[in-house]
């Protein structure tokens, strides 16, 4: 009964929204209002004003810098929430179920990951450092870093991963992004311009456009990339670790 009611309500909503879709302008039209007001300026002057050839990097770090700072804070608070719920892993005590089980990953998987891991990591570094001139940037590269370390952790053990990337190192790296953002943003405030206007201390605002923002954008990109990678890694470590192993899978003797 409840199911029927829900499906009817959703169908009514769907009909209304489908009617709206029929009224919307054709997809791919370049004369719709969303593309004629602010965007032309971003496209024409973005490279000059913001300093990066990738317009998405321009929008993220320069035109909508507040949004990105909030986003970085959101990821950081997600990490705080996960740790508050599940606690950090304890070195030498915490193990994942993969560590506890007596079945090891197959040799093919281990060799493949061992060969591919440096390549994936190098690709992530390329994404972070080259994010201004091509597709890529802090969040993209950071996600790839996180994914590569997670693959390593799943195939090899949590104990090995926490030895290579210890907790003390990650605590520093996680907080890097918000702090860098604030530090770089406040440099502009002390020079008498708005928060998050990127200028070098020695230059007056508006001079040497390429120089003033490239250095800061690069430092923010690197900080975001490293921090996002460390935060994803820490979240997965906190979720994968277990302290008590009553339910340890028992492997019968052959």
């Amino acid at each position: 009964m409840k199911k029927l009611f829900v499906i009817l309500a959703l169908a009514a909503l769907g009909v209304v929204l489908l009617w709206v879709v029929g009224k919307m302008p054709e997809m791919g039209d370049s004369r719709t209002p969303d593309k004629t007001h602010v965007v032309p300026r971003y496209i024409e002057d973005g490279v000059k004003e913001a300093g990066a050839e990738n317009l998405i990097t321009d929008v993220i770090l320069n035109y909508r810098g507040y949004d990105t700072m909030g986003e970085v804070a959101v990821i950081f608070s997600a990490l705080c929430a996960v740790i508050a719920l599940l606690d950090r892993e304890k070195r030498g005590v915490s193990r994942s179920a993969v560590d506890a089980s007596q079945v090891r990953s197959s040799r093919i998987v281990r060799v493949t990951v061992r060969i591919l891991f440096p390549v994936i990591f190098l690709f992530a570094v390329y994404l972070i450092l080259h994010g201004e001139n091509s597709a890529g940037g802090g969040f993209q590269g950071g996600a790839v870093i996180g994914a590569s370390i997670i693959v390593f952790t799943l195939v090899f053990t949590l104990i090995e991963s926490t030895r290579d990337i210890p907790l003390t190192l990650r605590v520093i790296l996680e907080s890097l992004s918000v702090l860098t953002f604030l530090a770089v943003g406040f440099i502009g405030v002390f020079k008498g311009v708005e928060f998050l206007t990127y200028i070098l201390p020695g230059l007056s605002p508006g001079v040497a456009g390429a120089l003033r923002s490239q250095v800061f954008m690069m430092s923010i990109e690197i900080a975001i990339g490293v921090a996002v990678g460390a935060i994803f890694t820490s979240i997965v470590f906190a979720m994968i670790k277990e302290e008590n192993f009553e339910l340890e899978p028992h492997i019968p003797e052959p």
């Binding site: 496209i43 929008v59 993220i60 949004d67 990821i75």
Partner: peptide, 12 residues
Amino acid sequence: PIPQALILTGIV
């Protein structure tokens, strides 16, 4: 570029 930048925020 604006929707793409906003959605990049959204995915994370």
